[in-house]
């Protein structure tokens, strides 16, 4: 067990398919909602407190041993957009592929057998974090950070934004990432203390769901979601 495993898992270069996804930023840029550093920060803040909180809580609950199939169904129920459900499963499948080589365990193999086309990425992230010897809080951090780092990196490519400015956005959001991770772990603890998956947050961002459906219909786009 090593805390440094968190650095491996959270590394933006971890080969789990994330580079092809913008976390909704491509649709937001085209719609004029992200035009520069300030609006990127607002977008990331909104995503962090909605999709980020939900993802972090699911990842944490998976580490604490909540039943994976129940978590996966609960994640489906919290994702109205079919395009986003599809993207979440593809990313879950890709994460699992990389993780099975990085941290080979019977539990990860069993998960691949049970979900050959992928489970929701945050759920897989939690199971992977456990395989890597990480805690619920580590997994929550990973999920919350990923939900802002993805759009920030994508906007550097989409708007030719100064990469230092984009990194500044991430640095300014870190204390909020802390708070989201803490709230996520609290919710995850309630799940395993007997409240079940209904205790997981269901914060939604309707514009992101709508944007994802719009984006999925484009003939020309840079990112898969």
């Amino acid at each position: 067990m090593s805390r440094a495993a968190l650095l491996v898992l959270a590394d933006g270069r971890f080969p789990a398919g994330g580079h092809a996804h913008s976390g909704g930023a491509e649709a937001a840029v085209k719609a004029g909602r992200i035009t520069g550093t300030a609006s990127l920060e607002e977008y990331c803040r909104g995503r962090l407190h909605t999709a980020g909180l939900v993802a972090a809580a699911f990842a944490a609950a998976a580490v604490l041993g909540a039943e994976v199939r129940e978590l996966d169904s609960a994640a489906d129920a919290r994702t109205p957009s079919a395009a986003l459900r599809g993207a979440a499963r593809r990313l879950g499948r890709q994460l699992l592929r990389a993780a099975r080589v990085a941290w080979p365990t019977a539990e990860l193999d069993a998960l691949a057998r049970e979900f050959p086309k992928g489970a929701h990425q945050p759920v897989v992230l939690g199971v992977v974090a456990r395989a890597a010897g990480l805690s619920a809080q580590d997994a929550a951090y990973c999920a919350a950070y990923e939900c802002v780092s993805g759009p920030a990196t994508a906007v550097v490519r989409l708007l030719s934004l100064d990469p230092f400015e984009a990194t500044g956005v991430l640095a300014r959001l870190t204390t909020e990432v802390d708070r989201v991770a803490d709230r996520a772990v609290e919710a995850a603890r309630e799940v395993v203390a007997g409240a079940g998956v209904d205790a997981l947050p269901a914060a939604s961002a309707p514009l992101m769901e709508i944007g994802a459906e719009w984006h999925a219909g484009w003939a020309v786009r840079l990112f898969a979601s």
Partner: peptide
């Protein structure tokens, strides 16, 4: 995701 070389070399999962 605008990086074809990444998809064939650094992150081949898709």
């Amino acid at each position: 995701g605008a990086c074809p070389h990444t998809a064939i070399r650094d992150d081949i999962s898709a």
